[in-house]
C-alpha cells in the first residue's frame, strides 16, 4: 500500500489540510474508491476503513492481480467531521456539488478538480454515497441515467438492488456524473445509514465491492456470490408521506414486504400523545426507504416502496 497526498492547502487557523489516497497493487488504473465527502458520512468512512483493511490483507497475500492498481480515497472532508458540520467547514459549500471543479476556484472546487484529475483514468469508479433523503435505505447501487450507464456491470456487485435515476438538477455537478462523462464506469454504493454506523450493511458494502473487483479480474478473492440484483428505476418508487407533522413512530422497518393499505407508521401529537395520522402503504411492495427523524414535517416522505415486488 502506498500513501500519497492528492490535495494540499493551508488553512487560516488549522494548519495544513491534506487529502490522502492509498494505492494497492500497481499498474493499470483499474478501480478507484471514494468515501466520505460530507462531515456526516460516518458510515461511508467506516466502510472505507473496513475495505482498506481487507485490501491490505489481499495485497499482502499477493492476490491483487499483477498490473492492476486500486486507489482508495477514504475522505475528502475530515475537517467537517471533526467540527460536526455536514458541508465544507468554512463556507458551507458541498464538495459533491462542485464537480468538475476548478483548480483556481474556491477550496471545494479545487478539491473536486484535484480529485477528478487524479481519479479520471480508472476503468471503474465507486463512491460510497449517502442517500439524498435523510433516513435509512436498502443497500443498493445507484447509477445515473447518462446514456453511458451499465446496469449489467452494476449487477456484478451482487447487491439486492440496482437503482437507476434520471438526472436531477444537482446531479451534473456530482463526482459520479463527471466520472461517467470522462469515461469511467461509475457506481454509487449506498449503505443503510449515513450518520450512524450499521455494521451489517457496512460489511455488505465491503463484500459487494470486493465481489465486483473479483469479477472484473482485479483481485483474487473467494466470496459469496451475492444477489442477482433487481433493477429499479428511481421514479418507480412510490412515496408514503406523513399527512400530519409530529413525532414519527416507525412501525415497519426497511426491506419489509407490505400490503396496500397497511399502516407503516404513525404521527403522534407531541402535546397530547394522540395519533394524528397513520402512514398508509399506497401499494403492495417492499419498503425501500424509511425516514429516521424523531419528528417530521407535514408532507415529508416517510417511506419509499418498491411497487408490487415480493421477497
Amino acid at each position: 500500500m502506498n500513501k500519497e497526498v492528492i490535495f494540499s492547502m493551508n488553512t487560516a487557523l488549522r494548519g495544513e489540510y491534506n487529502i490522502h489516497g492509498y494505492s494497492y497493487g500497481s499498474g493499470d488504473r483499474a478501480a478507484c474508491i471514494v468515501g466520505a465527502m460530507r462531515g456526516n458520512e460516518y458510515q461511508q468512512l467506516y466502510i472505507c476503513s473496513l475495505l482498506a483493511q481487507k485490501l491490505a490483507d489481499i495485497e499482502a497475500q499477493g492476490d491483487i492481480v499483477s498490473g492492476k492498481e486500486i486507489f482508495v480515497v477514504p475522505t475528502l472532508n475530515y475537517s467537517s467531521m471533526n467540527s460536526g458540520k455536514t458541508k465544507w467547514i468554512s463556507d458551507d459549500s458541498d464538495i459533491n456539488r462542485s464537480f468538475p471543479g476548478n483548480p483556481k476556484g474556491p477550496a471545494t472546487s479545487r478539491i473536486a478538480a484535484a480529485l477528478l484529475e487524479r481519479v479520471k483514468d480508472y476503468s471503474y469508479g465507486i463512491q460510497f454515497a449517502s442517500f439524498y433523503l435523510k433516513g435509512e435505505s436498502i443497500p443498493h447501487i445507484r447509477m445515473m441515467e447518462t446514456g453511458k450507464e451499465s446496469t449489467s456491470l452494476a449487477n456484478l456487485f451482487g447487491m439486492p438492488y440496482v437503482l437507476t435515476g434520471m438526472n436531477r438538477a444537482f446531479d451534473q455537478v456530482t463526482l459520479n456524473y463527471n466520472w461517467q462523462k470522462l469515461g469511467t464506469e461509475a457506481f454509487s454504493v449506498y449503505s443503510r445509514t449515513t450518520d450512524k454506523i450499521d455494521e451489517l450493511s457496512a460489511n455488505l458494502a465491503v463484500s459487494s465491492v470486493l465481489r465486483f473487483l473479483t469479477r472484473m479480474g482485479i483481485i483474487r478473492y473467494d466470496c459469496h456470490g451475492g444477489y442477482i440484483s433487481s433493477i429499479l428505476k428511481e421514479q418507480e418508487l412510490v412515496s408514503a408521506k406523513a399527512t400530519e407533522a409530529g413525532f414519527f413512530r416507525r412501525i415497519v422497518d426497511i426491506n419489509a414486504e407490505v400490503k396496500r393499505g397497511q399502516v407503516l407508521g404513525q404521527i403522534i401529537n407531541p402535546m397530547d400523545g394522540k395519533v394524528k395520522a397513520d402512514i398508509i402503504a399506497p401499494t403492495d411492495g417492499i419498503t425501500f426507504y424509511v425516514q429516521d427523524a424523531p419528528m417530521v414535517f407535514q408532507n415529508v416522505v416517510a417511506y419509499k416502496i418498491i411497487r408490487r415486488i415480493h421477497k
Partner: peptide, 8 residues
C-alpha cells in the same frame, strides 16, 4: 475576513 486558499 477569514480566508482560505482559493477564496474569492
Amino acid at each position: 475576513p477569514v480566508i482560505e486558499e482559493g477564496s474569492l
